[in-house]
Structure formats: structure tokens, C-alpha cells
């Protein structure tokens, strides 16, 4: 028995030496250290950059984040710098990175509020909370949750995001530079929005206070009004 223990101890020491030579001991063997390319723009906890375009990742549902990396990799979603980062990553690694950011709990940053007319703000609020049934536009809340904090596991929250990022995303659906798996329900919805609608919705979302509990709503808590590929078709 003792000899087995001794043997195990020797093996344990040897395996430590093995791993120490593989990677320099001064480099932390942590995911955060490995993903410096992500955290340098999105923040160590995915709190988002301060330039208005690098979005917050913290607390967004993991499957949503993993899907975005896949979409960048496949050229469905376009932003050259992001496409370059994820180009040669594997699905399990992207999933691990997504889970890391999804699990982060950090306070929401405040962003400069865009100056919009009261009329535009009211229009944004109406579209986000009620939609426009006459034009076939569902409310943002119909899918993104009653608090717009997203729904597990695939639907992102829309709170605490800067105006520039929000309007750029809606704009990119309109200009066909953001896609996802078919049927691409967001593309359908955005095709029914006018430029003024996009500014109004982005402005209203960007100026809305973040609710006290900003966690995504539980899975199955919304019934999407459209068929969406990202929700399994």
C-alpha cells in the first residue's frame, strides 16, 4: 500500500514538472489569461468598452454569445476584427469563452445619452413595448423579455447597451451585413423598420435605466411571435 502511495506521489511530482516546462510558470493557466484578445476590448469581465461599439458581454446568455462567435466565424455576422479573432477557434473553446462571459456579474456602465426629440423617444417606447401590429412589427419585449433583460438560453438582453452599438446592429440587419441561421426573424423585423424607427428604438433602449435585477428571464418565459432559426426554427 505504502509503495503505491509513494509511486503516486512521484507521479504527481513528475506531472507537475511536465506541465511547468510546457508553459512558462509565470503565465497563469487561466481562461482569462488565454482570452486577452477578448478582454482587451470587452473588459476583463465582459463589462464592455467605453467607445460605444464594443458591447457588454457579461450576463448575456451563453448560447447567444457562442452563436455570435460562430456567426462571425461563418461570415454571417460581419465585423472584420471580430471575424479575425474567432477565425480559428473550435466550438468547445468558443462555448467555454461564452460561458465565462455569461457567468460574469458586474455593474452596468452608463453611456452618454443621445439627444432625441420627445416625439422620437415616445415612438421608440411604443415600438419596443407594443410594436406596430399594422406593419407586422412585434414589440422588442415580445422576445427579449418583459424587462428586456433577455431570455435564457438564446435571446440577448437589450439593456445597458450604448446607442451607437444598438443602432449599428439594427442598421447592419438592414444593410444585410448581419445574419444568422434561417429563418432570420430579426432580419425580417428590421426590414419593416424605417431609419427613423431604428434611431427611435435605439435611443429609447439606450436611455432606459437598467432594472435592479438585470438577469435574463428563465427559458420558455416568452412565446416568440415569429419563427426564428436561433430558437430552433
Amino acid at each position: 500500500m505504502r509503495s503505491i502511495r509513494r509511486w503516486l506521489a512521484v507521479m504527481a511530482i513528475l506531472s507537475c514538472i511536465g506541465s511547468a516546462t510546457a508553459t512558462d510558470a509565470s503565465v497563469p493557466d487561466t481562461l482569462v489569461q488565454r482570452i486577452a484578445a477578448c478582454t482587451s476590448c470587452h473588459g476583463e469581465h465582459g463589462e464592455g468598452g467605453d467607445n460605444g461599439f464594443n458591447p457588454r458581454l457579461a450576463g448575456k446568455p451563453a448560447a447567444y454569445l457562442a452563436r455570435q462567435m460562430q456567426d462571425f466565424q461563418r461570415g454571417l455576422r460581419h465585423y472584420p476584427l471580430m471575424e479575425h479573432q474567432v477565425m480559428n477557434l473550435s466550438e468547445p473553446y468558443m462555448r467555454e469563452i461564452a460561458e465565462y462571459f455569461a457567468a460574469q456579474e458586474v455593474p452596468y456602465a452608463t453611456h452618454p445619452a443621445p439627444s432625441v426629440t420627445a416625439e422620437a423617444k415616445a415612438r421608440g417606447e411604443r415600438l419596443a413595448t407594443q410594436g406596430d401590429p399594422a406593419r407586422g412589427i412585434p414589440a422588442c419585449m415580445a422576445c427579449h423579455g418583459p424587462q428586456l433583460t433577455g431570455v435564457q438560453p438564446d435571446i440577448p438582453g437589450l439593456v445597458g447597451l450604448p446607442y451607437d452599438y444598438l443602432s449599428a446592429q439594427l442598421g447592419s440587419w438592414r444593410t444585410n451585413t448581419r445574419h444568422t441561421v434561417e429563418p432570420d426573424c430579426m432580419a425580417t423585423i428590421v426590414s419593416r423598420l424605417t431609419d427613423a424607427d431604428i434611431s427611435a428604438i435605439s435611443a429609447w433602449l439606450a436611455t432606459r435605466p437598467v432594472p435592479a435585477d438585470a438577469h435574463a428571464a428563465p427559458a420558455g418565459s416568452v412565446t416568440p411571435p415569429l419563427r426564428c432559426g436561433v430558437l430552433g426554427g
Binding site: V27, L31, A37, T39, N51, Q85, L89, S90, P92
Partner: peptide, 22 residues
Amino acid sequence: SGGFSPATEGNPRPYSMPPFSQ
């Protein structure tokens, strides 16, 4: 542009370099 080393069987969780373009 920074970037990750390729994720391969021999290096499944590569380290990365931040992009400095911004």
C-alpha cells in the same frame, strides 16, 4: 489585429494577443 493561435488538438485552448488597432 492580434488574435488567437489556431485551436488544434495539440493546443485546444490557445492563448491570444489583443488587437491594438483601436
